[in-house]
Design a protein around this nucleic acid. Structure first.
Lengths: 308, 308
DNA sequence: AATTTACTATAGATTCTATCTATTTAAAAA
DNA sequence: TTTTTAAATAGATAGAATCTATAGTAAATT
């Protein structure tokens, strides 16, 4: 059986005439006759009673046709459904981002994406690196904004930008008097970190250790679950912390009693990449996303590619 | 698009593996890969995300598959539906018969048909010749038992038997004394006829006229609408009538005060045929019907063919 | 690090099959 | 009878689906 053949019998039933049906189907009359005959012998029943003067559908033919109509309509549905998805930018694009990136990057791009790619529908999730990678593997998201290298060969990643770390301290801190703060200065400071599982915590710690430092108080009990909390803790005098550059745009930056300045160390940065399955079938959508991010990030970070 | 291709993607989605899917579909793996690729490019979307290690269905793929399942199931329905009809004897066979044949032939064959062809389903109607022919033309019935020749080239007919006419008269009628009654004797008798439209009425009249007779009282006001009524009228002394041989089996034959005997005239018969459209696609079913009739008719009628 | 395993994709040959044009057949209309 | 109308048939051709053989690729195993 064959959807085309079903269309043939539908045309015949509508015209009551093989020749006209053939015209409608854009085939010759012998072709249509032959195919219907073939279908009939395949099914073992006659669908039409033919006379030279007219064609009448049989009882089985009528029943077959009822189902044929269903099939034809379902097939049309599939086609139109595919047409809607045909634009590789169209359809849902499920993006995950880590919590120290998401609140600073997403606000930058949501508007421009909506304007430039109205057919694209972003579905956002915010989770830590580990979960995001697992979700990527299980096809629960299509791409992730991560600050870590991924060595999984199933994935590919597009580096987006280098994001320098800034040091944040209370207004009454000794750093306030200093023109620049380098990693060595972090020695003996109480370094406040995010909760376990946040890659930012590991990165901040490793930056401190870079210069051979071993900050006095990694205050395990005070580990925050968000940057916002972290800043509150800094303002309350519990210690200093390292913040990613993009977090500088937050509302806390003025009048919170917390001061921030770039760390004076060329290596004190993290790299943000867009990670996705090699096999993801709509790379164009990801390119559009990456381009938008690259076009919108402020000059406090260093882009790693030119938007195409 | 193609139902076969839809089966391919269904198999892949179920096995998560092109090679296994190919086995299930009894084709080689490259064939299946190629056809799915073709389908994808035809639809303009990818249905699967392929990796060397596993195959995952895409979002569109999932939607397409939902409709594909419908299509596949409808196609199966068509096939099984056709299988049920495949036996040319199976399925409804719609038979019409004229009122002067139906009540005498149908009781003879219903049981044997049910026994010998259990898959056959007879649908009976009883109407006059004209209506039956119209119904035949309009595909409302498939065949008709008629007592008239049909010259419509759309139809074909199988002669079944010659049915002699008997003459019926009251027990106190002069015919009762006679050894035989011929058509000439009908002269000057009151001949009772069926209502207009019944071919039997015309036939009875034409038999009387054959011998140059012109019966005195064709009692227009008393024309009966059934043979049963006609017999009542004869019994009540309103006249005589001609009855077809098969009607002799009726319950009236004993103790109703009506006597019947064969008309002594070799030409006083009517011919009963099975009439059907030349294009009717299940002639076997009609042959089965005709055979059963020929096997069951009593020897008061003369069969016109040997049952095959 | 090298080999094996388990997949899918690609290439080229072959077999089917749908299609075409031209013609035949058959019945109805003129 | 001839003409018209419509389906069936025949034979050729182009296009698709299929096959086998092989390449390519990543993961698992040695």
């Amino acid at each position: 059986m064959n959807i085309r053949d079903l269309n043939y019998i539908l045309a015949v039933s509508e015209t009551g005439n093989f020749s006209k049906a053939a015209d409608i189907c854009y085939v010759s009359q012998p072709t249509l006759s032959g195919q219907i005959k073939k279908l009939e012998s395949e099914l073992g029943v006659s669908i039409f009673e033919r006379t030279n003067r007219k064609v009448e559908i049989t009882a089985v033919g009528e029943e077959i046709l009822a189902h044929a109509r269903q099939i034809i309509s379902e097939a049309e549905t599939i086609k139109s459904l595919a047409r809607n998805y045909q634009d590789p930018l169209a359809g849902p694009l499920r993006i995950g981002a880590i919590p120290t990136v998401s609140p600073y990057v997403m606000p930058l791009i949501l508007e421009p994406i909506k304007r430039d790619y109205p057919q694209m529908r972003l579905v956002l999730t915010e989770e830590r690196t580990e979960q995001l990678i697992s979700r990527l593997k299980h096809h629960e998201i299509d791409a992730a904004l991560l600050a870590t290298e991924t060595f999984d060969s199933e994935f590919e990643s597009t580096p987006l930008f280098k994001e320098p770390f800034w040091v944040a301290y209370p207004a009454d801190h000794r750093f306030y008097e200093m023109e620049s703060v380098n990693t060595a200065e972090l020695m003996n400071e109480s370094l406040l970190l995010l909760a376990k599982g946040h890659c930012l915590a590991d990165q901040a710690r490793s930056i401190c250790h870079m210069a051979g430092n071993n900050p006095e108080n990694e205050m395990a009990d005070l580990r925050a679950s968000s940057l916002e909390t972290l800043i509150q803790l800094v303002g309350a005098g519990y210690g200093v912390t390292l913040l990613p550059a993009l977090a500088m745009g937050g509302s806390w930056t003025s009048g919170s009693g917390v001061i921030a300045q770039p760390l004076d160390d060329a290596n004190a940065y993290r790299q943000i990449s867009l990670v996705y399955r090699k096999s993801f079938p709509r790379p164009q959508a990801l390119t559009a996303l990456a381009d938008t991010i690259l076009n919108r990030i402020p000059n406090t970070v260093e882009p790693l590619a030119n938007p195409s």
